[in-house]
Structures are given as C-alpha cells and as structure tokens.
Design a protein around this nucleic acid. Structure first.
Length: 411
DNA sequence: CAAAGCATGAAGTCCGTA
DNA sequence: TACGGACTTCATGCTTTG
C-alpha cells in the first residue's frame, strides 16, 4: 500500500464537517435521508423519451439511468437543482472524475470523502460516437451549461465517413464501445476475415451474431470488404475531442498513445460541465490539475476560451508531461505552466506557496487512477485500496488542504 | 533493450420473464 | 421479487520481435 494519507486521518478530517452533514441535497425535490432510501422520478416536460431518474441509497450507489447526469445538451433538465453545503459552495471549484462501473462501495466511499456530494454519472455517448461511462463529483453550478462547438459527429458512420461503404447492413451499431488502453490483436481480425471469406454475399445469422459479438468485444470498425480493424490512435484523438496529432511525435510510441488516450477525458463531456465557468475569469484562471495525463482538462478549458493563467500540472509519466508541454507551446499559451511529477510530493506548504503567489486556485481538476476499479483488470481489481487507485486519498488530501488554506489564510 | 504482440475472466449492470 | 442470460469494461503480465 502506498498511501500518503491514512484512512483514519482522512476520516478525522471528514468529521470536521459535522457528524451527519446533509451536504448534498437536491433542493425542492429530494430530501435524502441517511437511513432510508428514496427514489424520485422526474418527468421531463419537454421530452418524453425517458425519465431522468435519480436514486439515492446510502447503502449502495446507483447510477442514474440512462446516465445523463444533471443534464446533457438538447435535453431539458431545468427541474434538477441541488444545494451544496457552505463548505463547498464557494470557490475553489473542484472536479473529480473516475470510471462509473467500479467495485461495490467505491463510489460511496469517494462521495463520503468529497463532502458527500452526489456523483453525476454521464455516458459520453451523448457527446461523441463512443460510449464512455464516467462519474463526476464536483461543486460547479449545473445550470446554463453549453456544449463545445462544433458538435462532434454522434454516430460511427458520421465520424468516419470513409468506412461507411464497407459497413454491412446487418451490423446495426451506431456507437463504439469504450476506448480502452489496448486494442485487438491481429489474430482476432485475421480470424474473422477468414471466416467471412467463406461466404459470397451475406453470411448466415449465426455467423453474423458471432462476428458482431467480436466486433463489440474488441471495438472493431469496417475498413474494407469483409475486413475489420481496431481504431488507430488518431481516431482515438478525434473521438475524445483532442486536437489531431495531440499525442503524436516527440518520441511517443504507438503503445504509449493507446495507453495515454485510453486513460483520458472525453473533452466535450468535461467541457460541457466546465462551461459554466465561461466569463467568470476574464483575467484568466488558476488551475491545479491532478493526474493530468495528456491534459484533457487544459484542452477543455482552452477550447472554452478560458485563459489559462497559472496551471500546476501533476503527472507521473514523463511522456504525458511532454505531451502537455508540447501542446502548451503549440497553442501559444501566455500563462505559466508548472509541471510536477508526483502528487505525493505536493505538500500543504507547497500548496500554500503557490496559492500565496497566485492568489489561490480557482479550480482543482483531475481523475485519480482507475487501474484497480476497471473491469478490464483481470489481475488486481482491488478497489479503493489498490496500489494505484488508493492515490484517490491524495486527491482528497490536496483538495481539502486547498479548501482549508483558502478559507483560513487567504480570505 | 525498447516496443509491439498477445492471452488472460471476473464482476458488475441491464433487461426480460416467471 | 427473483432469476437467468446478454452485455460491457480508463488493464496486467508474459512473450516475441527488431
């Protein structure tokens, strides 16, 4: 175990909030009790295609169905509102992200640490042509959000028009599955090609089912007649909303690109949530970016037109730090970028120094490692106490320290 | 030595039905 | 309510290649 912050220390810190702080209420509609379970269904007045259902259960975290969170573009959700406790209602804002489908109890625990704020579960399939189910805990306003423009293509065929002619009618997929850190080996697509070559026209239904199963499992696209292929790194970049060649060059290998992109934000989704900050920082924003990866947060803020004044970016992988630095140069940023390699080195004193110099942080943003949460992990899906995922406690430690310094020293 | 290739299921959620 | 089957998943570690 490699935690810079013990659970006992963290729970003590939580206790400062009060023994049973009703911190996150969905005002007007939902009054959550710690002991009883209440489920409220909100009928969308302008669109009857679905109910926005929010379920609160202190014993087990439920995901909102169908993963639209506190709202997505073109889906009126003005009925949903929430009231945050005073402790987190003011600046600095923080924005935490991780995989939605984590082992039981994980989201409950993370939510408890992060001031009992109810997570917002969103599938990025509403923002691009690929599924990406993620949970977000944040204290941002949730009204008057606006999507990044232009709106990306929402179907596979629109996103990759060149492949349209190869798409058989019996493959009804319009969305790709989640973009992972690894892609299909050649053996898979080679085997399918040989099977399909046995049939002149349309293969029989049982063969179709078999092929479709493999297509979904390995996230394959039609790139030729009877020919399937996994996505390329530049296609990952496009779907996730990054600039073309964002991760290309500068000594980055193909394997490293898949790894880094598979771990990244979907930029349009995050930018939609951050869009409420537009216009609030005319002189630029001070950002503490934790587990920055390839800079999804920085790219999102930049595309929103929010000037990056001071950015402290914490990222362990040198390859990723190079990518961010390179993007920073490419986009002619006028602000100040500070790159740190390890969250565990970020002490309260260090935070205090930065905050004194910058006048505090306006936004703390990042997603802690999901290695021990992901369903793809066959070896060490150990939950919040896993080797990498336990770094969540450092995320909380840092957020809480910034809140504390801001409240008690800089006001 | 670095980079790429490749085999390795469990643990959930969702959804229909009895 | 309960149950069974379909479906999906920010990966790790060993082997091969060059």
């Amino acid at each position: 175990m490699n935690m810079g912050y013990s659970i006992d220390e963290a729970l003590t810190a939580i206790d400062k909030c009060g023994p049973k702080a009703q911190i996150c209420d969905l005002a007007d509609f939902i009054c959550a009790s710690q002991l009883e379970k209440k489920t409220v269904s909100l009928q969308d007045p302008t669109n009857n295609r679905h109910d926005a259902s929010i379920s609160i259960d202190m014993g087990m975290m439920h995901h909102s169905h169908p993963m639209t969170g506190f709202g997505i573009p073109n889906e009126a959700s003005s009925l949903i509102s929430r009231k945050l406790s005073r402790e987190v209602a003011d600046k600095p804002y923080f924005y935490f992200e991780n995989v939605a489908i984590a082992p039981k109890g994980v989201w409950n625990n993370m939510s408890r640490f992060l001031y009992e704020i109810e997570p917002e579960f969103v599938d990025s399939k509403y923002f691009c042509a690929a599924t990406r189910k993620r949970g977000y805990i944040h204290n941002l306003p949730i009204h008057n959000r606006s999507p990044l423009l232009p709106i990306p293509p929402l179907t596979i065929q629109e996103a990759f028009p060149a492949t349209k002619k190869w798409w058989p009618s019996w493959d009804k997929r319009t969305k790709l599955n989640c973009l992972l850190t690894c892609v299909a080996p050649g053996t898979v697509t080679d085997r399918i090609r040989k099977i399909l070559e046995n049939f002149d026209a349309e293969p029989p239904p049982n063969v179709q089912d078999n092929v479709l199963q493999e297509c979904r499992k390995w996230n394959l696209m039609w790139v030729g007649k009877k020919k399937l292929a996994p996505l390329e790194p530049d296609e990952y970049e496009k779907l996730l909303g990054f600039p073309r060649d964002h991760t290309r060059g500068g000594g980055v290998t193909r394997t490293e690109r898949f790894r880094a992109l598979g771990n990244a934000f979907q930029v349009d989704t995050v930018a939609y949530h951050l869009s409420v900050l537009k216009g609030h920082f005319p002189n630029g924003i001070n950002v503490l970016s934790l587990f920055s990866g390839i800079g999804g947060a920085e790219v999102a803020l930049d595309r929103l037109g929010i000037m990056l004044k001071n950015v402290v970016s914490v990222e362990k992988a040198e390859v990723n730090r190079n990518i961010i630095r390179s993007w920073w140069e490419q986009t002619d940023q006028r602000g100040n970028l500070i790159e740190i390699d390890d969250v565990q080195k970020v002490s309260s004193n260090q935070l205090r120094q930065w905050m004194t110099k910058f006048g505090g942080f306006d936004l703390i943003i990042g997603g802690s490692p999901c290695n021990n949460f992901s369903g793809s992990n066959r070896v060490s899906r150990h939950g919040l106490e896993g080797e990498q995922s336990s770094l969540f406690y450092d995320y909380f430690r840092i957020v809480d320290a910034v809140m504390d310094i801001q409240r008690n020293e800089l006001q």
